[in-house]
Design a protein around this nucleic acid. Structure first.
Length: 261
DNA sequence: ATGGTAGCCCTGCTA
């Protein structure tokens, strides 16, 4: 069984790429982030024609998460218990969708972008991670293999950014964000990709601007975290850097894990 | 130099 996560930066503008990628990579379950589509705009039919069932949650007016699975899609759940609210008037931004696919519990998450260190969005991001970690603690001891995967908008280690000097006063590397990510690890989850794709200079995201991809000036911010029963089944993993190349690429690369049957 | 690029909510905002 092959499972992947990919921030596609608009499912509508990327649907041809997603279709081609699914056809050639033999992925059974794909967690998608930044769908940027309303329900009536989401290309369900294209993915269904490829044999995938799809669950989508557009959590605010410009973003969304989804799961596409060709090994079953059961017990779909939007968000976590007690997810913090955001906006005026307060609205719940669940920013996550979960489902059981072929016996594996998968969560597609889009961790809030904190924008700036002192921005209220940053406090919201840290609180969101605290709530996720609290729920993750309950999942870590499950017999059910469980993965939390997506765009975390956090570079946990200095080697996960092309320049710590550049990011010193910016989002994604601050102690509070890194502590939030660590909280999910402390809840009993492990990064199942890093051992198979070690750094330094191994990234999952490159800004469109300033020829960052061509210069390999990126960040590792997309992660697949597994509980012990999931991690025990991982036999390989890779970051598909090739997919970031060329015209019409997302600014994120897909991240893939291979599970033993 | 608050620039650059991409995508949508589209001449402004978000990432």
């Amino acid at each position: 069984m092959r499972i992947a996560t990919w921030n596609v930066n608009s499912i509508r503008s990327r649907i041809d790429r997603v279709e081609d990628w699914l056809r050639r990579t033999d992925v059974d379950v794909l967690a998608i982030q930044e769908t940027k589509a309303r329900e009536d705009q989401f290309p369900y039919l294209t993915l269904q024609a490829l044999g995938y069932e799809v669950a989508h949650h557009g959590f605010n007016q410009w973003n969304g998460v989804a799961i596409a699975s060709r090994v079953g899609l059961e017990d779909v759940q939007v968000g976590f218990e007690g997810a913090p609210q955001w906006g005026e008037p307060p609205v719940t931004e669940a920013r996550a969708i979960g489902a059981t696919c072929g016996g594996v519990r998968v969560w597609s998450v889009y961790v809030p972008n904190g924008r700036q260190l002192e921005d209220p969005h940053m406090a919201y991001k840290v609180e969101w991670l605290r709530v996720l970690a609290a729920d993750a603690a309950g999942w870590s001891t499950d017999e059910t293999p469980t993965a939390i995967m997506g765009d975390w908008n956090i570079a946990p280690h200095d080697e996960d950014v092309w320049s710590m000097e550049f990011y010193e006063d910016k989002s994604h590397v601050s102690p509070a964000e890194r502590a939030g990510f660590q909280g999910v690890l402390d809840a009993g989850f492990v990064d199942v990709v890093r051992a198979h794709a070690p750094g330094p200079k191994v990234y999952t995201y490159w800004d469109y601007q300033q020829l960052r991809f061509q210069k390999n000036r990126g960040m590792r911010i997309d992660f697949i975290l597994g509980n012990p029963t999931f991690a025990a089944r991982v036999e390989g993993a890779a970051i598909d850097r090739e997919e970031r190349k060329g015209k019409g690429a997302s600014d994120h690369a897909p991240v893939v894990v291979q599970l033993r049957d």
